[in-house]
Amino acid sequence: MTPAGGAVPTRDGALPRSLLFAAAAVSALAVVAVFAFLLWFSLPVFRGDALASLLSWRWQPLRGQFGILPMLLGSFCLASSALLLAFPLALGVCCFAHGAGPVRAARPLLAAVRFMTSVPTVVYGLVSVFLLVPLIRDAFYGSGFSWLAAALTLSVLVLPTIVLLVDAQFRQVQAEIGPSAAALGFSPVQQLLRLTLPLSRRGLAAALALGFGRAVGDTLIPLMLAGNAARVPHSLLDPLRTLTSHIALVVATDSQDLAYASLFASGLILFVVTAFVHLLLRRWRGQAA
């Protein structure tokens, strides 16, 4: 028998420990390297008046204005609006699977949600461009490429992540309290409402945080659907640009130094936000344990 590829066993069948350690070190350093590169390349921004230019509300590279605040706001608006839709829906699906719906429907429903995690982002984007965008265009006004279109699609994208996390949490809680609650005469819905939901508060918060991380980090949905105007949106039907799609667009088009610096600064902000989300999650997990 040979072990899986990667570490080659020595003659006595033991794995060379130093090789494994090296691999682990490389994996751990990868994240440090990403952070270091982002920091290093956004350094020019922190010198002199470049920072003031960056932290302004105007993105007009041809006039030398490189403000990324509209994108920062755009990312925040889009991610929170998508969550505002996806989180209650996910909660509804989990409640359905844990007592509010027929027992037999729970498995197929969760299987469908699991299948949704395997749908490529670009496929969601493509279908939305040709199904959702025309609908919005006809129902309201404008081109249809808007905050609304991106938020709706993004909520579908992050929904499975949230559902699976909340489902795991519900499962854990119900394994603990299920028999006692049933013995006390709680109906499944009562149990859900009075016990499982309140007891899952921390798990729900964790699912929300992770969903936010996912929503903020997605590039393709806003790039394909949000219209990408570097302005502050005033309504759901206005276009907006997120930090992620800003990065993709600037790499494709601009080549001025300060534009590049703004690119890495956007990346740095994204990194810090997602790192913060994960630190928060770890803390919660540590407290729970």
Binding site: V31, G217, I247, F264, A275, H278
Partner: peptide, 17 residues
């Protein structure tokens, strides 16, 4: 810790890297 952090990094940042 590092692996968790890496898992959370948006994919566009890998591209930017």
């Amino acid at each position: 810790f590092c692996v968790d952090l890496l898992a959370g990094i948006p994919s566009i940042l890998m591209g930017l890297f």
